[in-house]
């Protein structure tokens, strides 16, 4: 049976919600933290960041299996939240799906970024620990891209 589990990752980001939202919504910025992973070849990427719009990408490591993500955005509230359904496929086979909500809430001199997911793992070679590692790593990258975009770091 597929396993359904929930995941929540909170991160304080020293930027206002609108600056974080811009990095979620802008195709070039989004691709830079979400897909252009070290050692990976991005084969395709498209983003229609509207309610009902899709994000699709394909990439692979070292000429190996093709990873594909497909995301359907169903609710977007600028500077506040993004809700979507996401599918990860490897060589055409669905490995996991998730209902994801990302929210932004002003906090002190920045904002609290929260990624909450209801994950369904269709293959036991994927699991919550690995997914949490991946999301944590991606949020690190998101934070770094925001810092660069605000010229906080070189």
């Amino acid at each position: 049976m597929p396993k359904t589990q929930t995941l929540q990752i909170d991160r304080f980001i020293r930027a206002c919600p609108s600056d974080v939202f811009r990095v979620l919504a802008d195709p070039d910025l989004r691709k830079s933290w979400l897909y252009d992973l070290p050692g990976a070849e991005t084969l395709s990427f498209s983003l229609d960041f509207r309610e009902g719009g899709y994000e699709r990408s394909a990439f692979r490591f070292d000429g190996g299996a093709v990873f594909e993500t497909e995301v359907l955005h169903h609710r977007i509230e600028p500077d506040e939240s993004v809700s979507c359904t996401r599918i990860l496929r490897i060589d055409g086979q669905t490995v996991s799906t998730s209902e994801r909500e990302m929210t932004l809430r002003p906090l002190n001199d920045g904002c609290l970024f929260r990624c909450a997911e209801r994950m369904t793992f269709h293959d036991d070679r994927d699991d919550l620990t690995r997914h949490r590692d991946m999301v944590t790593y991606l949020v690190d990258r998101l934070d770094a891209v925001i810092a660069r975009s605000l010229n906080r770091v070189a």
Partner: peptide, 24 residues
């Protein structure tokens, strides 16, 4: 920024382990 230890290995192993083929 380096990927967390084991993450890239997991990605490669996962890709290698899964069979090719689209759903019927």
């Amino acid at each position: 920024m380096a990927a967390p230890a084991g993450l890239r290995g997991w990605v490669l192993a996962l890709g290698a382990a899964l069979a090719c083929g689209a759903a019927l």
